[in-house]
């Protein structure tokens, strides 16, 4: 299926000062093409949490945004590692491996992936030592 809108963003490891910048741009971009506020709010939660994960857990990475012909919004978060050792635990609310530094800033509640899964219409996560790819899909609700 063809993509009507495509954007790519780079995320830098440990750069807390820029956290949320990509998610803000994704929200603005999608708002400009008429995506409804209800869907935008879900996307904002999911993209912010995923962007933060790339900064505090992964070695940075690339985020791609696509709006498909059928109106589906796909966002892919791809990082180069180190991978999630125990995916099942990572998806458990309250479980976190966040560093002391991250926790001091209010991260590490263990709600990131559970929040993302809850607000997404499609959720797929693949992880190995070579990196993690999180693919999310969103649609307007009928």
């Amino acid at each position: 299926m063809a993509s009507l809108l495509h954007k790519e963003y780079e995320v830098v490891r440990d750069d807390y000062s820029l956290a949320g910048k990509v998610s803000s741009d994704i929200k603005r971009t999608l708002s400009a093409v008429g995506i409804s506020p209800a869907v935008l709010r879900r996307i904002a939660v999911a993209s912010y949490e995923s962007e933060i994960n790339m900064i505090i857990h992964a070695w940075g990475g690339v985020i791609t945004l696509d709006v498909m012909e059928d109106g589906t919004i796909q966002i892919v978060f791809k990082d180069p590692g180190p991978g999630i050792a125990d995916l099942e635990k990572a998806l458990t609310p309250g479980w976190s491996t966040a560093s002391e530094k991250a926790r001091n800033m209010g991260f590490g509640a263990g709600m990131g992936l559970p929040n993302i899964k809850r607000v997404s219409d499609e959720f797929d996560i693949q992880s190995s030592e070579a990196g993690t790819t999180l693919t999310l899909g969103f649609r307007e609700q009928a």
């Binding site: 949320g20 904002a44 939660v45 209010g106």
Partner: peptide
């Protein structure tokens, strides 16, 4: 949306969260 957020966090990410939320 529209809530006032009471917090003691004062770093940059607070602004991002408030804006997105």
């Amino acid at each position: 949306p529209e809530q006032a957020w009471i917090t003691v966090q004062v770093h940059m990410n607070v602004i991002g969260v408030a804006s997105l939320r």
